[in-house]
Structures are given as C-alpha cells and as structure tokens.
C-alpha cells in the first residue's frame, strides 16, 4: 500500500480529496440522523451531542416501510428491465445507421430529455385515467420508463459506437445475421456501458417521487421515495427523520452497487483478453 501511494504522488492525495468531498456530507447525514431534533440546530458543526436512535426506531416501526421497500424494488427493477429492453436495441440501431433519420431522432431525444417532469404529470394522469393504469405498478413503471428511455438511449449509443464494426463485418462474413451478431458480438462488448446505464436507471427509478405520489392514489402503494417526502411538512423538515430514512432507503442501493461493481471489474479483465 505504501509503495503504491508513493508511486502515485498526485493520484493518491487527489483521491483523498474526492473522498473527503463526498464523505463529509454523508457523515453529516448520518450524524443528523442520530441527533434529537433539538440538537440539529443547536450543535450544527460540532460532534458533541448525545446520540439517539429515535429516528431509526420510528422509521423501522412504521409498518409501511416494508411494503414501500417492496414497491420500490418492483418499480425500480421493472423500470430498469423495460428501459433496457427498449433502449439497448435503439441505442445500437442509432449507433450504426448513419442517415438524416439518426440526426432527427437524436435531436428529438434531447428535446424529450429536456421535458420538465412536472409538465408530464397532468397529461399522463389523464392518459392513465383513460387506460386504467392509475394506482397500478405497471402504470408507474411505464411512466418512469417513458421518462428515462431517452436518457438511456443517448447514454448507450456511444458505447455501441465504440464497438469496432470490423468485428461485426467479420461475423457477417462467417454468415451470422445482423440480429445474431448483435447478440453474440455487440452486446458482450458493450456490457460495461449496459451495466452502467442499467445501474443508473435503477437508481433514478428508485429515487423517483413525483410520479409515485401523483399516480398512486392510495398511500399504501407509495414507494420509499414518497415516505421520504412525508418528512417534509407544511411548516418545515423533520431532519433526523429524513436523514434516518435516507440512510435506510440507501442501503439496498449500496448492495446493488457492490454487485454491479464486481460485474464491471470482470468486464475489465475480459476486455483485456479480447
């Protein structure tokens, strides 16, 4: 360890700076979650306070927490699968076809990406009302997917671009069809991008809140993100409660990330063999 740090006189300290920049706010979140509401303002920049687990006890005693966690899991997974199923082929198609259509579609995707989410709520509410999708997980997954698909396509396209066409052409000479080449050659090579995009989509869907509170008519269906919102009341924010819930709801995220991180690392070594 010491030798490696010495070998990287610049990178080591810089990494530490990055670490501090993100660890301090996180530490503050954890400290606040352990404070009584009185201490939040009273001991803002000090570490001297009497820790209490009240906020966690309250959060964990809430029976709704477990239903909400299940809801979040279903919604985030469903959204991730649906978005990837649509965006992967689209990203590939747009990476390979050079025509005016590509230009137009890319431009439209950016405009879609630019749509304020708040502006979608009312039209989608009407649409879902007609189609009986209100108050269902399917409706929410569709809404979240419609929101995130343009983003996923834009993000995936450069990863498909960087797969050399020579490999595809070689496969074609061997008689492989376009579709087969896509699955056997292109997808494996683009997996870093796909894993990253998938992770990001999952996290975004996990945190999505505006659609959830508008399209679920009954609070029992609310996912975790909506529980977090309940800590913000008419008169102010319950900080310890908010921070404790933030910590609790982020733990599944951490687990997911550690899982995909392994995937990414394996991707690196496999890529080196190629």
């Amino acid at each position: 360890m010491r030798r490696r740090l010495l070998a990287e006189p610049v990178a080591g300290p810089l990494r530490f700076v990055v670490f501090v920049m993100y660890a301090v706010p996180l530490l503050w979140i954890i400290l606040t979650s352990l404070k009584s509401p009185a201490d939040v303002i009273g001991s803002q920049s000090s570490f001297l306070f009497e820790p209490t687990f009240d906020a966690y006890v309250t959060a964990l005693q809430n029976v709704g927490l477990y239903t909400a966690m299940q809801q979040s899991l279903v919604i985030a997974t469903g959204t991730m699968v649906l978005v990837l199923a649509i965006a992967i082929p689209a990203g590939y198609g747009l990476a390979r076809v050079d025509s005016r259509i590509t230009t137009v579609v890319l431009g439209l995707l950016i405009v879609l990406q630019m749509m304020p989410q708040t502006a979608n709520v009312i039209p989608l509410f009407q649409l879902f009302g007609q189609w009986g999708l209100l108050d269902t997980n399917l409706g929410l997954i569709i809404a979240d997917s419609a929101l995130l698909t343009p983003f996923a396509i834009l993000l995936l396209r450069p990863f498909f671009r960087s797969v050399p066409t020579a490999l595809e052409e070689a496969a074609a000479i061997d008689g492989s069809s376009v579709v087969r080449t896509f699955f056997s050659v292109v997808l494996p090579l683009a997996r870093n991008g796909i894993a990253t995009t998938g992770t990001l989509i999952f996290l975004l869907a996990w945190g999505e809140f505006l659609y959830a509170v508008n399209f679920f008519l009954t609070p029992i269906n609310y996912p975790l993100s909506a529980l977090l919102a309940s800590q913000v009341s008419a008169f102010g924010i319950n900080w310890p409660g908010l921070m404790a819930l933030a910590v609790i709801t982020s733990i599944p995220i951490l687990i997911l990330f550690l899982f995909t991180y392994r995937l990414l690392r394996e991707g690196l070594t496999l890529g080196a063999v190629k």
């Binding site: 809801q71 919604i75 469903g78 699968v81 269902t136 997980n137 029992i220 269906n221």
Partner: peptide, 16 residues
Amino acid sequence: LAAGALALAACTPSAS
C-alpha cells in the same frame, strides 16, 4: 425478459 418485467409489475399492487 420483457414479459417477466411486465408480469412482475402487474402482480404486486398490494393495496386493492
């Protein structure tokens, strides 16, 4: 995969 996702989505509205 896609069908699985939709089935997953459809089977869990717990409230009703």
